[in-house]
Every structure is written in structure tokens, then in C-alpha cells.
Design a protein around this nucleic acid. Sequence first.
DNA 1: CGCCTATTTGACTCGTCTCAAATAATGTGG
DNA 2: CCACATTATTTGAGACGAGTCAAATAGGCG
Lengths: 226, 226
Amino acid sequence: MSNAGRSISSHTGAWRAGILSELSPEELEHLAATADSRTWQKNELVFPEGNQPRGVFLLLKGKIKIFATGSEGKPQIIHIARPVELIGFRAMFSGENYRVSAATLEECEIAFIARTEFVKLMDANKDLRDTVIRELAKELGERALYVTKMAQRSVRERLAMSLLELEKVYVNEPINLSREDLANYVGTATESLIRLLRELREEGVIQVQARKLVVLNRKRLEALAG
Amino acid sequence: MSNAGRSISSHTGAWRAGILSELSPEELEHLAATADSRTWQKNELVFPEGNQPRGVFLLLKGKIKIFATGSEGKPQIIHIARPVELIGFRAMFSGENYRVSAATLEECEIAFIARTEFVKLMDANKDLRDTVIRELAKELGERALYVTKMAQRSVRERLAMSLLELEKVYVNEPINLSREDLANYVGTATESLIRLLRELREEGVIQVQARKLVVLNRKRLEALAG
DNA sequence: CGCCTATTTGACTCGTCTCAAATAATGTGG
DNA sequence: CCACATTATTTGAGACGAGTCAAATAGGCG
């Protein structure tokens, strides 16, 4: 492995996906030595649907969208990842190819952890395995319920929900997504999204400055989301 | 444990959820000895959302619906389980309470495997752990994509999709669900579902006999599902 | 046979999508 | 730094899918 990137060890205080929290300092050190991070440009494809995973990506800085392509080519954004989050671990564990694509939304710093390294750690660390199982199961629970939320709510309600979720992704900074990406996250047409955004702005629920959205009235949004 | 039920050992040829396929004959024998099955009536609640899981259910005969309750009380059927399928393992692995409910759709035979038994097996059997991880990851992939399918398709398309899925659940027998359950599975109003069913019947795509639906033209359904 | 529930049909409304076009913003080459 | 090209955002008009409410019909079960 090259040594071009910066070590990941300085990030070990704030794992979001709890999966790596079970590693011992030595293991983490080893991981840091083999997994270098590098900078990615905005709008780069991290991995495309259909490819075979060779490891997992650890997002250290920036945001990444995870999206699937619908039957008519319309992308659906399934998740927006923020630091520090492990990307692409599902496909690696399942032994399948990627079923979704990932692309950077802004300039990012991403570390790559080779499959062999991860497997080695898994074999050596029982707690890590238990954590992986627990996290996968939790995530699966979220996903299963997500269907309910999407299928039963109006676009207006889904937008409110989505804004609340995005607030957690964009901590201490305005939500910054293109109208199209936001529409694909909510699961609606861009035009519909824009109209609803205007209504929310006129009601004083959000502040809009070009692409940047700030939630002003969270209570109201929560009420709208149901 | 009581010995009222029938042993599960006679079912070990056709595990659907591959999770238990990694067990050795001895382990399976032990499981069979501690986990007895019993018969459940139609429309019994296997477990309700919010409860703490004490183990997993193994569906040996019959069908079970897994459903979540939406914000306005409207249930959304997330999955319909058929033999031989493990029910409720997600909550057990995640350490959370059930986030969904399960109810029998017809007379069922269900074995219960206590949490302690399952944990014992997991600790002793590395291949079983790997299988659990792999299966959870696979299922997670399915679920993540499901959102895309639901959000982007019309009710007509979702109905076509659903019928194709249900065909795999009801093997060699007609799909047998109330209109309401079917509507809650597709994610639509009962009246809308009925209208679309009539259209499909008139187009010769399905055969309808009271509650019983038979797919006559799978190709056409696949085309409609997109 | 009759009650109760499930299913079906009809009429109407409303949300959301699509298509078209205008405007704003962003990037590019001279 | 300007003029132009290109893309992103916004607004408008119209059509249609799908939900709701109400009522009729059919089925199932005691």
C-alpha cells in the first residue's frame, strides 16, 4: 500500500458506525498502517452498482450519497453518509456484488480497508464479530421500517422526514444538496420538491439560501412528518 | 420445555433462511430436543411490536405476516413468511425490542428456540456466525433496494411486483390473502387494489376465485412490474 | 335463515407528475 | 473581465392516478 494518505488513527474518537469500536489499540494501529486515506473530488464515483467489493471504505471527511438506479433510470438516494462512517460493508459481508452505487457529494477524504485485512480482524476478534452482527441487525430493522414510512406518507410528509434526517447528517452546517439530489432522496419529482420547499420557506419552517437549507422550526417539521 | 409438540428434526432438509444450515447433526439434534413446536390458530399474534424477544420462531407450516403499524394506524405488511423460515431473529441479534409484529395468516406450526440455546450455538459454531452475518447482509441489501421499488412505482406496478413475490411464497397453491392484507402488502387502499385486480382479471393475467388468486400470465406481470 | 363482515362499485376530490418555458446561476473560452 | 453556452432552478398549466366517502352486494358463520 502506498503511504500517500494520512493515517486514520487520529480519527478514532468518533466512530459513527460502531463496528470498529471493538478493535484494540494494536489492531487499530495495524489497520491505520495498512489503510491509507486519500482525497476525492466532488462528484466522483466511489463504487458503481454491480462491481465486486474488494474491501470497505471509511469516510473520514465529506459526504457520500448511496443510491440505487430505478427501472427508468431515475436514481433513488438511499442514504447519505457522513464522517466517520464505514461504506460498502454490506456487500462485503454478503459476498455479493454492490447492489447500489456510491458517489461523493463534496470533496472527501476516504480510507480504504482491504477485504483481507478486515477478514483477519473478524477472525481474531469475537467482539468485533458480535458487533458486526448487532449493527447489521439494527440497520436491517431501520430499513424494513423505512418502507412503511415511504409508502404511507405524502410527499410533503416525506420531505419533512427527510429534512429531519438530513439535519443529523449535516451537523452544524446547512443542508447542502442540489434540488435534484434532494428530490431523489425524498423520492419525488424535482418540481414538486421545489414547490414544497417554497411553502416551507414561506411558513418560516426553513431558511433557504440557494442550495443551502437551514431548519428554523424543528417542532413544526416533526409535526409535519407525523 | 414441554414435549407437546413435534420434533423439528424431520424438517431439516429444506431450510429456507440458510442460517441453520451450518449446524452439525448433533447440534440440530440438541436443538430439536429443546425446541418443541405447537400449532397456532389462524390470525393469532405471534409477537407484537415493542415486546422483548426471548428467542426465535421457526415456521414449520403455514404462513405468517410480518407487519409494521404506520402513523395513522394503517398496517403495512413487510414480509410474508413461509416454511421453513426463521422469524424474529433480527430483533434478537440487534438486542432491541421487536419493531414489527407477526401474526399467523392460516393455521401454523411453529417451533420456538430460546435465546440461550441460540446464543450457545452461535458461540460454539464459527460457520454459523459467518452464515448469520452473510444472511443479515443479504437481507439488508434486499431491504435497502425495496425502498426504491416502492417509492418509484405506481400502484399498478407494485401490485404486479407483489403478485410475483407472492407466487414464490405460495408455491403450488393459490395466493390466499384477504383484500385488505393484499392492499397492505402492496401499500395501497383496499378499493384501489380491488379495481386493479379486476383489470388484471379482465386482461387474463390472473384468475380470481374469491380470495384465491392464480397467476396465469407471468410474462405479462413481469412486464407490468417493469 | 339472518347477522356481520368482506368485497365491490360509484362519484368525487386532491395531490403529484409531466411537459413547457422562463429565469437564474455557473462555468468557459476569448 | 466580458459574452456566451450550459446547467440548475423556478414557475405555470394541464392531466391523471389514487385516495376517501358512501352505499350496494356478496359471503361466511353461528
